[in-house]
């Protein structure tokens, strides 16, 4: 070390730098420039840049686009099926459900959500969220991201936000597809709610917007579970399957009448609460309870994910 000291001492004195000597890195860049702490504003930008990179990966990946396409397809198939049923059957043979949907273009959106929210949307969201950390660990890119250094908390936050954006994108895709299909196949106009009250089309659209917000939050809570599981494995399929098992076990437990007391603690119980927007006035208490449950799940599984990921040895 002492020789290194004297050498650099000589080299750092400007007048004494021998012409033949290669300049050291420390001289080419002033130390303030290379090692000064990054200003907070720059750090914020860097966070959004990494999130942008993450979103770019997620929304350009063919697999994820295929998943969104499947979600978009379900309301179309459902709409066409109901349209055929409504056209062929006599009025008195039609069930209430078909009548509701066939009677108004907006009702298909609510029907689609009640079909998709219990299984297919959770599958789609858990694929992206479960892949978040485990996928990077599996390909080995995680070690390079962390050595960059992305920062563990920062990377986890970016990964979760990316999953939330994808959850909302999936929800919006279902809503838009159902809305367009509904508008093409069924008459518009005022909407008759579950309570029998009729509201204007604009009010109906507003209620769809509330539904998207609520269902998206539910999927964001599920994404928290999937991201947490994702920090425990290097195999993304494991995290995805784990999340699916969680959802299915919850559904089974909900189906057992004797276990009714635990139902409020199960995440999927709250997914279908969006039907509160079909009451008049909107049952805000039901929505609030659901959002609180989602918030609790996000806090709990977010903490688990952080605790696990911040101390984990990355050996992949």
């Amino acid at each position: 070390m002492s020789t290194a000291d004297t050498q650099t001492g000589i080299r750092r004195t400007p007048g004494l730098v021998p012409v033949a000597e290669t300049m050291r890195t420390t001289e080419r860049h002033p130390p303030e420039e290379i090692s000064a702490p990054v200003p907070p504003a720059r750090r914020t930008w860097a966070f959004w840049r990494l999130l942008g990179s993450e979103l770019g990966l997620t929304f350009r990946r063919p697999r994820n686009l295929a998943l969104l396409a499947v979600l978009a397809l379900v309301p179309i198939v459902l709409g066409i099926g109901l349209w055929i049923a409504a056209g062929s059957g006599g009025d008195d043979e039609m069930s209430g459900l078909i009548q509701d949907v066939a009677g108004n273009s907006l009702m298909l959106t609510f029907l689609s959500f009640s079909f998709l929210v219990l299984l297919l949307m959770p599958v789609v969201v858990s694929v992206v969220a479960g892949d978040s950390i485990a996928g990077e660990a599996g390909t080995g890119t995680l070690r390079y991201l962390l050595a960059a250094p992305a920062g563990r908390t920062r990377l986890l936050a970016v990964k979760y936000l990316n999953a939330v954006v994808f959850a909302y994108a999936a929800t919006a895709v279902v809503a838009l597809s159902a809305l367009l299909t509904g508008l093409i196949l069924f008459p518009g106009g005022s909407v008759t709610l579950l309570s029998g009250t009729t509201v204007s089309m604009a009010d109906g659209l507003l209620r769809i917007l509330v539904t998207v917000g609520y269902v998206g939050a539910g999927m964001a809570a599920l994404a928290a579970v999937a991201v947490a599981l994702s920090t425990f494995t290097e195999v993304s399929i494991g995290a995805i399957a784990g999340t699916m098992v969680f959802i299915i076990v919850c559904q089974v437990l909900r189906a057992i009448p004797d276990l009714a007391p635990i139902a409020p603690y199960l995440l999927p119980t709250w997914f279908t609460n969006f039907d509160a927007v079909l009451r008049s006035p909107i049952d805000t208490a039901a929505l609030r309870d659901g959002l609180l449950a989602f918030g609790a799940y996000i806090m709990l599984f977010g903490s688990i994910a952080w605790a696990r990921f911040s101390g984990k040895d990355i050996t992949s």
Binding site: I34, V38, S53, T139, G151
Partner: peptide, 30 residues
């Protein structure tokens, strides 16, 4: 300030070489 190659290369197979480097550059907050 440290460039590292650890246990062989690891990149995103569906991205180009340049896009892969952009991805890791985005991860560096500085």
């Amino acid at each position: 300030l440290v460039g590292a190659l650890v246990e062989g290369p690891a990149f995103y197979p569906y991205l180009s070489g340049a896009a892969n480097l952009m991805r890791f550059d985005a991860a560096d907050p500085t």
